[in-house]
Design a protein around this nucleic acid. Structure first.
Lengths: 255, 255
DNA sequence: ACTTGACTCTCCCCTTACGTCATAGCTTTT
DNA sequence: AAAAGCTATGACGTAAGGGGAGAGTCAAGT
């Protein structure tokens, strides 16, 4: 039982030989004896000390501190541990915050990536129709209003909605806003919104054109439906019905 | 509008001048122009890029990665973000684990700190009595057995027991072991154990010496009590009763 | 006794993301 | 023109080792 060589101790403790060299160098863990050849030889006491070192290293103590702890018998370990705990807690909080930031970034990126193009947004309309319409809206409401509305439509198409009801509300609110801004029902954005509405309905059942038109009719004739829509804006039920009629007349496509 | 000097940009972005030097050095953020004097001059584009750098730095990206992200337009940011998220999540988990470890260490240390001393353990006995007794026990059962028994007693006194029933069981088991090791009832450790027993009883009610002795008597005479104690060891009820008698005769102190 | 292969030693440079001088040159103010 | 303020480059240091070069040492096989 001559003790452990560097390799043996390293393997026993699961550290590298270089680490032992380093610890010797900084005076953190000196070998029990050094042969005249210069070979390091460690005993039981050193193994124990190494295990303590590794324990504190786990707790993210810097080596200098560990040396102080192990070399000073009257080191206030309790106080130090509480401080260390505080620090780690702070770091953990920061990481949690980071996760939120990353998640937001990811979601933002997804929306951006899946953003549909202008062609998709104005599907079924010619390029001229599209530009004429955009110009008209811009003149009436400004470029930013147009931008906002287009973006809302894009998000409706692209974002995965975990909450189907929320999506429904977003569509209805958008239609209400379009009506209040006096977009006529056959215009591209309204038709696109109706397309989204149809897609949304399909989450529950899949009506054909006739059935869908019947549904629109119900919106104005059935008091319960009507009340639901009128809470967004007066006349919304009728507006949607007219829009649906146009949508169905055009074969349930944008144009 | 000639752009920003190092100092201006540094203050704007909240970094040090050295940092800007460094970023220039590693090609992460080169100034827009360099005056013939060598002075760096940054423009709007550089300010923007710096802000992006700082954002990714927040997310713990190494500078090399940041450079890769910003210089490669077709860098797969989404994938990278997910990876980064995974890493941070792991680190966060590790920190949570660390907190648990630290807490355990703190609790362990508290119990150790509150460990009572030899004097307290052998309260009421003289130093000579104590040593003679310890020697005898050591000869009969070995030093480690003595150590173990003393430690169990110390833990009974020091540890805060959240579970009162568990403490009662620990006391009874200890008394049973003392009896099986043939400790006589007037010896220090047995008397200390009885003191703990008394303290434990006090969690429910506070008998005086006479009442406590009466309780001891009941342990042997009432079948229900007796059966409870005899499950640890045959004769335990009687052993405890004798120990209680000694304890009360000595004025309810160790000696 | 000799050689081989495994092991070990001591330098020394490299890593990250800068902080901290030191020394010298440029600009602006007094 | 001198003083004050700003800037540049270069070098060294940090924490905790990683990796390698060149040289010495140990135990075993031939």
């Amino acid at each position: 039982m001559t003790g452990y060589s560097v390799k043996q101790l390293a393997e026993l403790a699961g550290v590298s030989i270089r680490t032992l060299h380093h610890y010797d160098q900084i005076g953190l863990l000196a070998p029990a004896t050094k042969a005249e050849s210069g070979y390091r030889c460690y005993g039981q006491a050193e193994l124990l000390r190494l295990q303590q070192i590794l324990f504190y290293k786990e707790l993210k103590y810097p080596l200098k501190q560990i040396k102080a702890i192990l070399d000073n018998p009257d080191f206030d370990l309790m106080d130090s541990l509480k401080q260390q705990r505080q620090q780690i807690l702070q770091e953990a909080d920061r990481l949690q915050q980071l996760l939120v930031t990353i998640d937001k970034t990811i979601v933002g990126l997804q929306n951006q990536e899946q953003m549909i193009t202008d062609e998709e947004l104005y599907e079924g309309f010619t390029s001229e129709q599209k530009e004429a319409y955009r110009q008209e809206v811009t003149e009436r409401w400004g470029a930013d209003k147009l931008q906002e509305t287009e973006d809302r439509l894009r998000q409706l198409s692209s974002q995965e909605w975990t909450d189907v009801k929320a999506k429904g509300q977003a569509i209805e609110q958008l239609l209400a806003d379009l009506m209040e801004q006096a977009h006529e029902v056959q215009t591209p954005l309204v038709q696109k919104a109706i397309a989204e509405h149809y897609a949304h309905i399909c989450a529950y059942w899949t009506p054909n054109a006739q059935q869908y038109e019947g549904l629109g009719k119900m919106y104005v004739e059935d008091e319960r439906f009507k009340a639901h829509y009128e809470q967004y804006a007066k006349g919304l039920a009728a507006y949607i019905y007219k829009a649906i009629q146009v949508y169905c007349a055009n074969g349930m496509q944008g144009s």
